[in-house]
């Protein structure tokens, strides 16, 4: 049996990826189990899903605590050491990253393969939704499920044109994924905070929710307070008649960028 953990964000389709993987494995004659994160899913919030694949019916109901493979759908989460937590010795980390695996700063006795799934998704789907694209990389790196079965699963899930676009994405990622290499980085990066997964109540740090980051050009700022007024998370403090962004509170929704009347807030994509 192998256990798989998938990291993504609310809205990126990690749960769909887990179900497609399980479904395709079953089509290949194996048994499988796709477990969503228990609880509520929030748009933008990091989340996890799990898959087990075995030759016999999977009985256990606990979560996958020591996965053999970890898939990361999000380019920013792909930079986090914590995505490798619990990964078995010699286990495989498949990252959505434009970097070659040797340049990835995630340490451990693990193998790393990378694929620029965001680029592939933008080319094939015209959207940065990477949940299907990464499956081609999985098939190539792990050896199963077969591409034929993944295609069938995708056609079943997304009939018509959308399905064909997704199938193009898995083939491209099958071709473009790097071979898995031993992790070269030795010192684990000490992270300020763990990946904040969703849930209720007050969270510590939501920096990992952001895909885009607002940056204020104070020279152009007229001090109108619109950005401060409309921020749902009080991430913008008003100090000395100037806005100041507290980035650990910023989820990157972009309301401040939209509402700034003089357009002095840039919205920059942080790429891996």
């Amino acid at each position: 049996m192998i256990g798989i953990r998938i990291h993504g964000r609310g809205g990126q389709g990690a749960v769909t990826a887990s179900r497609l993987l399980a479904d395709a494995s079953y089509r290949d004659g194996k048994f499988s189990q796709a477990i969503p994160m228990y609880g509520t899913e929030r748009r933008g919030a990091p989340l996890v899903a799990y898959v087990r694949i075995d030759d016999v019916r999977v009985r256990e109901r606990e979560l996958v605590h020591e996965p053999d493979v970890v898939i990361v759908l999000d380019p920013l989460l792909s930079k986090k050491q914590s995505v490798a937590s619990g990964l078995k010795k010699g286990g495989l980390l498949i990252l959505n990253s434009s970097l070659p695996p040797e340049k990835v700063e995630i340490a451990g006795d693990i193998k790393i393969a990378t694929v620029d799934a965001t680029k592939i998704a933008l080319e094939t789907l015209k959207l940065p939704i990477t949940n299907t694209a990464i499956l081609g990389a999985f098939s190539k790196s792990v050896g199963y499920p077969t591409m034929e079965s993944i295609e069938k699963s995708i056609r079943n899930q997304f009939p018509g044109r959308v399905g064909e676009m997704n199938i193009a994405a898995i083939h491209q990622s099958y071709e473009e994924v790097t071979p898995a290499v031993q992790a070269t980085h030795t010192e684990p990066v000490v992270e300020e905070s763990d990946i904040a997964v969703g849930g209720y109540g007050v969270l510590k740090d939501v920096s990992s929710w952001r895909v885009f980051t607002p940056i204020i050009d104070l020279d152009k700022c007229t001090g109108c307070r619109a950005c401060w007024l409309f921020c749902p998370e009080t991430a913008i403090q008003w100090k000395d008649n100037r806005p100041e962004i507290e980035y650990h509170k910023c989820k990157g929704c972009g309301i401040c960028v939209e509402e700034c009347p003089v357009k002095c807030i840039a919205f920059e994509r942080v790429v891996a």
């Binding site: 929030r42 748009r43 933008g44 209720y200 109540g201 007050v202 650990h248 509170k249 929704c253």
Partner: peptide, 11 residues
Amino acid sequence: TITPGSACQGC
């Protein structure tokens, strides 16, 4: 408010 909370982006 005690932030950051657990609402979605742009809530």
